[in-house]
Amino acid sequence: MAPPTSSASRIVTLLLKVFNFVLLLISLIVLTTNTATAYTEVLTFKVYACYECHWIRIYPLTNCILNFSHYNGKSFNKRDGGALLDFYGDKVISYLLATGAAAGFGVTVDLKETFGLFIDRSFYEKAYASASLLLLAFVCTAILSVISSYAVPKKV
């Protein structure tokens, strides 16, 4: 398979990065605003350690912002190792996102089995939605990783 053209690759990369940023931001908002009441205790994502790893969403968000800032090529030239940085950065972030999505699904299943009748159903639905958005962000980042792998042999 021939590598994609430069302009088409840049447009697709930019669109995927924007879509990835939006998915991560919405996922973070859904997770942080998700609350429920069990008995007399108000439950939030901070109560459970696995949900508290919301930093998994924050790190890729900052990476997206940094990628946008050097996307124009002025602050970080692709010849100076930017292709390798994009390639390995996308790999690391995709693994973080996949791990975060799996942890989100796992802890939600465990909570539902443990407190199923005592917590409102919408709490679980929002937790699943947040993890699903994180999984979609992983798919976007995995695609970005494949696209960035085309640039590595040319630039290194």
Rank of each mutant, 00 (worst) to 15 (best):
T5N: 12
L23M: 14
L43T: 05
L144I: 03
A36H: 11
V152R: 04
V30K: 02
V107P: 03
N67I: 13
Y48R: 04
V47L: 15
C53A: 12
A101H: 04
L117T: 10
L84Y: 14
R57L: 12
E113V: 07
D110M: 06
K155L: 09
S122W: 04
G100Q: 05
L135S: 08
L144F: 00
S122A: 08
T141S: 08
S9M: 08
N67M: 13
L25V: 11
F105G: 03
A102P: 08
T5R: 04
Y71L: 08
D120K: 08
K154E: 07
K17P: 00
N63D: 12
F19Q: 06
F123R: 04
T5Y: 06
L66C: 12
Y124I: 02
K46A: 14
A98E: 06
F115L: 15
Y124M: 08
L24A: 01
H70R: 11
I26N: 05
Y95G: 11
L133C: 07
Y48G: 07
F45Q: 12
I93Q: 08
A127N: 13
I147K: 03
L117Q: 08
K91E: 09
D110K: 13
T32F: 04
T62A: 12
L96P: 00
Y71C: 04
G89L: 09
S75F: 15
